[in-house]
Design a protein around this nucleic acid. Structure first.
Lengths: 236, 236
DNA sequence: CGTAGGATTGACCTCGATCAAGATTAGTGG
DNA sequence: CCACTAATCTTGATCGAGGTCAATCCTACG
């Protein structure tokens, strides 16, 4: 498990062999098979959109650095944050069905993505059984994650929702070779609340309660998981 | 839009050309391209499981008749109903990732499924760009549906959840050539509640309220949508 | 006819939404 | 470098929707 500092600068060229998220990203497979998906790197400033809702779908995007939130519906009123994408995650999978992006992707910080034209992806998949398998696994994993979140949202207790959310972030940080206990949240309390079906005040209340219980150390968006076992207990 | 009675008997042989859900099901594409996925029909009695959680994954299943619920976690306590599968739906997409079924599929009534060995599916996808496209659309649609449900679960109002749930059932009934207003629910109040994150008593309370408001006519599992516009209003 | 599982109804109570300030931080321009 | 401002986060109060508990009714099935 390589230790790494937060979000180092990445080269402008789509040199996937040297990309720090190779093991998570689709393009790694392209290197294995030699047949290329010619992805180009694109920079997105914090607050800008990578794509909008109802925009025509042409490419998938692999996050190389930074973080995104995906929103559906008019933001931030009736709309909801459907998920957060970290380096190595794919954006746009939900657009394959109708050929239209069904959500809006907004950068939470200055970010870089690798654009993967979908027609090229399809050709590459047909050419390689291994790549095809990997791609289907990625889509399947997205479904699994959504089901886990649905289970979470079905849970009524606010504490359990937030605990499980933090545990998810911890796990994803570990997958990326970062600390699983010292988290730096890229999103606001309002984003978290929108994602979990809670008001931002409730998020605050719960975090305060977990801090008072000695489970967390909270300083704005820097959160340390002090009592991992206790947090799992709260999550159920 | 052909009118059809409820769930007619289907032939035992996997004759997909004559299957009434051709336009919804994956195998229809196999007929288009001639290269076959040799699916065999399997009968599942009401209450029986098609597959269990953590069972090794080998095949996808296309529902031909009847209905299924998919559950995750110990049922029915901590567990939740993640979704309902109707004729034409695919079961098992979430198992591709880890090679293990991540949920349990339980027949809500006597049902028939078409078993599709996944290795054969993969071969067929690689051989046909059209089939590949169709398959990816199916997976993508699953993701889109999950996101819609997540949005629903984020919504706190029980009435809105149930109204949206009924509207979804209505839409799916229409897609299958059935009435969009006279619904026959295959699942119990408890299943609905587990799916929507509500107690079964709350489901009852809400249905009673919607009946009193003249929006629905409820007689156990037979529900008529009297005021479709009003129901949409409740759903938000 | 009798039993059991599913559904309805009603009373009470908890937990999160809501409202309202206030505190802290970050960002901006002089 | 330091006000000034806007955004974000926190804290505390009250209120209401939904959970919980408990009793009853209804339907299906043997």
């Amino acid at each position: 498990m390589p230790s790494m500092t937060h979000l180092p600068a990445l080269p402008d060229e789509p040199d996937c062999m040297s990309c720090e998220r190779r093991h998570l990203c689709l393009p790694v497979v392209r290197d294995d098979i030699g047949s290329a998906v010619a992805g180009s790197v694109r920079a997105v400033a914090a607050g800008d959109s990578l794509f909008l809702e109802d925009e025509t779908f042409a490419s998938l995007y692999a996050v190389r650095s930074g973080a995104f939130k995906t929103c559906v519906g008019a933001s931030p009123q009736r709309g909801r944050v459907t998920g957060f994408a970290l380096p190595g995650d794919l954006l746009g999978l939900d657009a394959i069905d109708a050929g239209l992006h069904r959500c809006q992707a907004i950068a939470l910080q200055d970010s870089e993505v690798c654009e993967l034209p979908f027609d090229q992806v399809e050709q590459a998949l047909a050419a390689s059984g291994m790549l095809q398998r990997r791609f289907h696994q990625l889509m399947s994993r997205e479904i699994v994650r959504d089901h886990a979140l649905m289970r979470l949202l079905g849970q009524r207790q606010a504490g359990a929702r937030i605990a499980a959310f933090l545990l998810g972030l911890s796990e994803r940080a570990l997958e990326r070779g970062q600390s699983g206990t010292a988290l730096r949240l890229p999103m606001s309390r309002e984003d978290i609340g929108s994602h979990l079906g809670l008001r931002l005040e409730t998020v605050s209340h719960v975090l305060t309660r977990l801090r008072a219980a000695g489970t967390l150390a909270v300083r704005l968006r820097e959160i340390d998981i002090v009592d991992m076992q206790g947090l799992r207990g709260v999550a159920g």
